[in-house]
Design a protein around this nucleic acid. Structure first.
Lengths: 147, 147
DNA sequence: GTTGAAAGACACCATCC
DNA sequence: GGATGGTGTCTTTCAAC
């Protein structure tokens, strides 16, 4: 599916506030409500809009430490690692990567002790390189701003 | 603010569908609508609910390559790098980190050529280590499932 | 893609437990 | 802390264009 500028504006508006009504949204993109609704439904069925969700500030919930961990599996125990990471609630995401390591994981923990627990859990068959996040750099431009 | 099990269920439900009405939500967590609304407003004003947004599948929009890049600045030109990354629409996030590198950036590009363009742009004052994402490992458990 | 109308659902408030 | 009921508004949806 090829998106035009209006579709992208719709996505940008819904990214900023997914709870607004189709009417409000229609006003913002200078279209009628039924027309906007049709475009949104189309993007939903195409899977471009993957879902309506919220942004949660985990820091305010006490998870004060974010970190990135590169994980390299020693004896190729990929399945073992996948099973463990899939049920780790501290994991925000995990990707299989090409590059220096096997996986890159983002973790959110309350204290460094939780990080230690996790590293100890996998250290028998995995090597880890951990980067603690110090601050976030805000990105101003989005792919939805493009042409 | 300390969240109880009901608050966490509300967050989990809104994460799954942020467009549902307070009434629907109330049914799911076995509370009345005004009561749920009050809890939601509280979490909004506390900043725990940071916003209502959508999940976009950028792969379906043609951005087929995700990658993680570690960036190490040679002469400490942090500001220069920050300015460039802040206006790069391909950047999904960027964190200042403690560890081997200065920053870790996630990029979404249509083709490796776009990656090359970016690397060339900063190569004068930065060293980069790039990890191409091959696949995503789904995480089943969430911090909102906790106690 | 637009307009207009109708039915239904919604949030909100006051009140009460 | 939470539930109930009434009110007026806003919403989506549909038909006609």
């Amino acid at each position: 599916m090829i998106l035009d500028a209006t579709d992208k504006r719709i996505l940008a508006e819904l990214s900023a506030n997914s709870r607004q009504s189709m009417r409000e949204l229609a006003k913002k993109v200078n279209l009628s409500a039924p027309s906007v609704t049709e475009r949104v439904r189309k993007m939903e069925s195409e899977g471009i809009i993957n879902g309506y969700t919220i942004s949660i500030d985990y820091g305010k919930m006490g998870y004060g430490v974010d970190c990135f961990m590169e994980v390299t599996l020693r004896q190729g125990e990929y399945e073992k690692f996948r099973r463990i990471i899939a049920v780790n609630p501290n994991a925000e995401f995990c990707y299989r990567i090409a590059g220096r390591a096997c996986y890159i994981v983002k973790l959110r923990v309350k204290a460094l002790q939780d990080l230690e627990t996790f590293i100890n859990e996998i250290t028998g068959y995995a090597e880890t390189v951990t980067h603690i996040a110090l601050s976030k750099v805000e990105i101003e431009k989005s792919l939805l701003d493009e042409k």
